[in-house]
Design a protein around this nucleic acid. Structure first.
Lengths: 217, 217
DNA sequence: AATTGCCGGATTGTCGGACAATTATTGTCG
DNA sequence: CGACAATAATTGTCCGACAATCCGGCAATT
C-alpha cells in the first residue's frame, strides 16, 4: 500500500452543514438570525433541497431552531437554558472526575490541558475556546463511554453558540489554565471530594461569566 | 379562552417519521433491515424527498444508521453498545436518585411507578416496556433538567430498538415492579447509599437480560 | 383608535421528474 | 470456481413547480 492523499468522500450536504457550523461557531451569524433557504442555496451554489438537509442536520444538533413554515434561526439561549447546560455539564463532568480520581488513565486530560495552555497563549479566541471545551470533554471521556461523550459534546456545542456571539475571549486565560491544572492535580492525588468542589466552583464561575455576557448582549 | 380541539399542525415529514418510529418500536422492522426510499415513498404515498427528511430525523435520533450511498438501515446494537447504554443510564439515573434522596419531589416517580404496575398487569408488551422506561426517565427528571432528560430519552430510545426485536416481555413483571417500589422506598427514606446500590443492581440485571436476548437473536 | 378583513409578496412544505455516481447483482468466460 | 464485464438498483443532487402559510401594509368597520 502506497500512501495516497485521502479523498474527500463527504456529501455536499455535509460540507454545507460544516460550513454553516463554522460560521455559527465563529459568530458570523448572530443568535436569532434567520437562515433563508434560497439565499443559502444561491450563496453555496447548491440546490435548495441540499440546503434543507443541511439545516435539518444542524437543527438536530441543536444549533438551529426550526419553526413550521417560518424556517430556521440560529438558536438563542435564554438564561434558563444556560443554567441547564451548566448544571448538566456538572453532572456529566463530575462523573468523569470521579472516574479520574478512582484511577482512570489521566493522560488524555493532561494532553488536553497542555493543548489548552498553548492555545491560550496564542491569543486566538475561537481556537482557545475550542481547546478549553476540549479539556472539559476529556473529563467526561474518562468514563470511557462514547455515548456520554456525545451528550457532553451536544451540550458544549450549544454553549459555543452563546460564546461566539460575545466574541471577546476572557483575558484571564492564564488563571483559567491554572484552575484546570489545579483540578488535574487533585484528581492525580485521588482527592475526590476536593476535585469535585474545584470542578463545581469552576463551572459556577464560568456560568456566571457566560450569563452576564449574554445578558449584556 | 374556550377549550378548542387542538388542530393537527404536524408536517407530512413528522407524520412519516412518527409512523416509522412506531414500526421500529413495535418490532415490525428488524435491526439491520434496510429502508428503501422509493419503496417507502410509494407505501406512504409521499414524495421521496419527504421520506428522505423523515429518515434523517430518525437517523439523528439514533434509530436508523446511514451509510453513504447505501441508505438507511435499522440500527443494530452490539453488545458493546448495550453495555455503554446501560453504563450511561447508570450515570444519569444515579444523579437523579441522589436528587431524589436529597429531597426532590418524588410524586412524578410515584405516578410513573403506578402507571407501570398497571401496564404490567395488562400484558401488553409494548405498552409495559414503555411504562417501564418511563419510570427510569422520571428518575432523571428529578434533576429538573430538560437537557439531561433528553439525553436519557435518547439512550432509552435506542434500547427500545433492541427490546422490540425480541418481542417477549419478561414474565417476571411483578418482580420488576416490586424492585422499583423498593428503590422508591429507599429514596423516600433518604438512604442514598442503599438506593444507589439498588439502582445499580437493577440496571445490571436488566443489562444482562437484554444482552442475552440480543445474543440469542 | 383599535379591531377586523383583505391583498400581495416572501418563504416554506411538498411534489414530481431527471440524471450522474455509487453500489449490488447477474451473467459470462477462462 | 474465481475474475471480470455488463446490468440493474439505489442514492445523492439538481431543477422547476405549486399550494399553504406567514407577514406587513392598507382599507373598511365599529
Amino acid at each position: 500500500m502506497v500512501d495516497v492523499p485521502d479523498i474527500d468522500r463527504s456529501s455536499t450536504t455535509d460540507r454545507v452543514a460544516g460550513a454553516l457550523r463554522e460560521m455559527l461557531f465563529s459568530g458570523d451569524l448572530a443568535p436569532g438570525e434567520p437562515l433563508r433557504e434560497v439565499s443559502l442555496a444561491d450563496s453555496f451554489h447548491v440546490a435548495r433541497s441540499t440546503v434543507r438537509e443541511a439545516l435539518q442536520v444542524l437543527t438536530a444538533e441543536g444549533l438551529l431552531t426550526r419553526e413550521p413554515n417560518k424556517g430556521a434561526t440560529v438558536t438563542a439561549l435564554s438564561e434558563h437554558d444556560i443554567a441547564e447546560i451548566f448544571e448538566a455539564r456538572l453532572v456529566l463532568e463530575s462523573a468523569g472526575v470521579r472516574a479520574g480520581t478512582a484511577g482512570a488513565d489521566l493522560s488524555p486530560v493532561t494532553a488536553a490541558l497542555s493543548a489548552y495552555a498553548e492555545a491560550a497563549a496564542a491569543e486566538d479566541a475561537v481556537v482557545a475556546t475550542h481547546a478549553h471545551l476540549e479539556f472539559h470533554t476529556s473529563l467526561v471521556a474518562l468514563l470511557g463511554n462514547s455515548r456520554l461523550v456525545a451528550s457532553a459534546d451536544a451540550l458544549t456545542a450549544d454553549l459555543r453558540l452563546a460564546l461566539a456571539s460575545v466574541e471577546r475571549q476572557r483575558r484571564n486565560a492564564r488563571q483559567q489554565v491554572s484552575a484546570h491544572r489545579r483540578l488535574l492535580t487533585l484528581m492525580r492525588a485521588g482527592d475526590e471530594h476536593a476535585a469535585l468542589e474545584e470542578l463545581q466552583a469552576h463551572l459556577g464561575a464560568a456560568r456566571l461569566s457566560v450569563t452576564e455576557r449574554v445578558r449584556g448582549a
